[in-house]
Design a protein around this nucleic acid. Sequence first.
DNA 1: GTCTATAGGCGGATAGAC
DNA 2: GTCTATCCGCCTATAGAC
Lengths: 209, 209
Amino acid sequence: MTNEAPQIPERNLSSSKGEAILRGGMQEFLKNGYAATSMDRVAKAAQVSKATVYSHFQDKEGLFIAIIKYLVEEKFQTIFEPIGTDNFATEPEIILKELANRMLDTASEELVFQNFMRVIIGESGRFPQLARAFVTNVEATGFRVLRDYFTHCPRFNFADPEAIARIFVGSIVHFLIVQEMLHGKDIVPMERDRLIDSLIALIVPDKKM
Amino acid sequence: MTNEAPQIPERNLSSSKGEAILRGGMQEFLKNGYAATSMDRVAKAAQVSKATVYSHFQDKEGLFIAIIKYLVEEKFQTIFEPIGTDNFATEPEIILKELANRMLDTASEELVFQNFMRVIIGESGRFPQLARAFVTNVEATGFRVLRDYFTHCPRFNFADPEAIARIFVGSIVHFLIVQEMLHGKDIVPMERDRLIDSLIALIVPDKKM
DNA sequence: GTCTATAGGCGGATAGAC
DNA sequence: GTCTATCCGCCTATAGAC
């Protein structure tokens, strides 16, 4: 609206120190959560002084929100839509199996994502707007991809494709939560293929196990 | 092993002050999580002095663990097995619908349970033993009840009843997490009956929606 | 057993030099 | 822009009176 010099378009990720602070803060907040993270540790992790942290971000809450918003809107937005689902020639059991495996691969291997979900859920009482951003950008993306696939793939004729999408995503995310995030692998062991194969057998018609 | 006077069998819930501390600590820890809760606020909530808190429990960590263990082992152990599933005469769709509705009723109405899950997941990095206790006493209980039902009810003949149980519990718990705990109700609205009906249609054979 | 008072440290945030 | 040094409050935990 004014004739001022153009600003850096998105958030200021170009400054070297600013980037370091975001990376350091990310490391600490994802490891410890919001309350247990101190600005001293963030500064140390970013290898800058605490005053420099406060010159780039208004306060602890502002830094935390900036970091989580970046993760929600940029880094993990597409984690639940890892492959193209516009291929209606390939057998649905192939497509769905590939989709489930990629979701679990990404989420299981990247410890960052598990810590990210831990923080989102753990802080969802104190930071409801971040939880909503997660639902909008991460969960809803997965729902949409699967709902569209179940709607448009001619092999399916579900009365409520969106509900089936919820069941698919929900089964996989809950599996991730119990086996990995809650350290349940040794308590209630289950190979991921058992879950995925049973899920696909329920969803894909004329498919006997 | 000795001739000493008999002690109170389980944890000491009989002392009036001790009970108040557990209740006050529960209120604060479930509302704020571990790190954001101060022992001053616990003492205030319990209407005792801080020194009294420390005379009943070794330290903050010990109090937290005592409270969460109580919730995991006593209060919420049966939240995922709310009705008898030994009735093989009633139609499975009736049994399963009732089961799903009771699980979601209890968990949705009791805000305490949502805060409890938030804390379990949020602190599962710092307190893995509490997360494992949750898996053992709460999640695995639900898995077992449904696996046994799918195994013994003659209407079913699943290749992997345990995996089907995971899908059932996972769909419902994930629905609870997204709609309630992550405040997604207004972002990705869905009546619970849509989820439950679609889930039952997938699981119960010869049942058309 | 329970209290008041306090020790001792770490927390978020800022002042002021460069 | 970045630093060092510091303010001040709240934190966990305890000492000592009753």
